[in-house]
């Protein structure tokens, strides 16, 4: 059986900026929140200064609900027969239009499918925590 690895994020410096800062701060608390426009409600991601739909600046950082796999790929690792990397893009039930990219960890690639619910885990990087995805949990982590 093949299993997807957890990359070493220890030396990774996250590019935090004014617009994405709350994302990383919610992440420190183990929660995914995404910016929704206070005027029209549209989510914007990547975080930025203006709503791409109505150009409003103000946002509210809302919970995003269940994450599901939008698509993924499986990358072999040189010299490793049983380990792969799985870059994965997820969507959220309660944050339409948002897609978050990271890696699916500890997963058997042969059992992974588009639409599958995933849980979010947060792993330490040099200046914050990075979200990664896991398949086993149901996603109702409070």
């Amino acid at each position: 059986m093949r299993l997807s690895i957890t990359p070493d994020f220890a030396a990774l410096e996250i590019a935090r900026d004014a617009w994405s800062e709350p994302f990383w701060q919610w992440g420190e608390q183990g929660e995914v929140r995404m910016p929704a426009c206070l005027h029209c409600g549209a989510f914007r991601w990547p975080a930025g200064p203006f709503c791409p739909s109505c150009r409003t600046q103000e946002v509210e950082w809302r919970p995003t609900g269940q994450a599901r796999i939008h698509t993924f790929t499986i990358l072999p690792i040189s010299g490793e027969a049983t380990k792969v990397r799985m870059p994965t893009l997820v969507e959220f039930d309660d944050a339409p239009g948002v897609r978050l990219v990271s890696v699916l960890v500890d997963a058997d690639p042969d059992t992974v499918a588009i639409g599958m619910p995933v849980a979010i885990d947060w792993i330490a990087a040099s200046n914050g925590k990075v979200a990664v995805f896991r398949t086993e949990a149901t996603g109702d982590r409070a």
């Binding site: 990359p7 030396a11 870059p87 990271s102 890696v103």
Partner: peptide, 10 residues
Amino acid sequence: VGLGDFAKRW
């Protein structure tokens, strides 16, 4: 393309 930073890598 940066370590495990897939947002950058992609």
